[in-house]
């Protein structure tokens, strides 16, 4: 699918996919190793989620879905994780879907091109809330999460929003670089 997309946009598909894959791996590694040092009340920023949002906003469609799913599976299986696999995969999959829909409607209303800053920030907020909530609620359903979810989710969303202006433009630029 991404090959077809790539052929449509005329870029080397392999390079682009490798770039996205590398971004996902780097985000997951940083989120697991470096981000805990900057934790606020033990809540770390969701770098992988930001990457998924950026990919979905730039490329949309299945790229967002697959990137979200892949990043989620990686987070589910990477070493410190001990929760039921598939929880982050589901969360980031939905995040990718929502961000893709945002890009799509932004394109229909404002024409092609990058979504404006306000849209990006709103998307990050919504996606962060949705992603962390799905992860937390799925944990609740599987009996793996504590009952006080809301403060954690809110702090997490706030942290992601704080980080978004620093990270998202860079990501959009990088992924755009891969496009052309």
């Amino acid at each position: 699918m991404s090959e077809m997309d790539a052929r449509a946009s005329g870029a080397a598909p392999v390079l682009r996919n490798v770039l996205v894959g590398m971004l996902v791996v780097i985000a997951v590694v940083l989120q697991l190793s470096v981000a805990p040092a900057f934790a606020i009340r033990d809540i770390t920023p969701d770098l992988a989620l930001l990457v998924v949002v950026a990919v979905a906003l730039t490329r949309g469609g299945q790229a967002g879905l697959v990137t979200g799913f892949a990043a989620g599976v990686l987070l589910d299986l990477a070493p410190p994780a001990d929760h039921t696999a598939g929880r982050w995969a589901l969360s980031l999959l939905i995040v990718g879907y929502v961000a893709s829909r945002v890009r799509e409607s932004s394109n229909t209303h404002n024409g092609p091109g990058r979504p404006n800053a306000l849209t990006v920030m709103a998307t990050v907020a919504a996606c962060s809330f949705i992603g962390v909530s799905i992860f937390a609620v799925s944990g609740l359903i599987l009996g793996e999460a504590p009952l006080t979810l809301l403060p954690t989710v809110l702090i997490s969303v706030g942290y992601d929003l704080l980080l978004a202006p620093l990270v998202i433009p860079m990501l959009l630029w990088l992924i755009g670089k891969g496009d052309f």
Binding site: G60, L65, V66, V73, G86, A89, L90, E104, P112
Partner: peptide, 30 residues
């Protein structure tokens, strides 16, 4: 691309469903 002429493609429902089922499979396998 769901009726947009911009060349981008919106998410396809079938992919979404397939991947959600993948998540459920993962959780079950785990």
């Amino acid at each position: 691309s769901l009726e947009t002429s911009s060349g981008g493609s919106g998410p396809k429902r079938s992919w979404l469903i397939v991947l959600i089922l993948c998540c459920a499979t993962l959780a079950t396998l785990d």
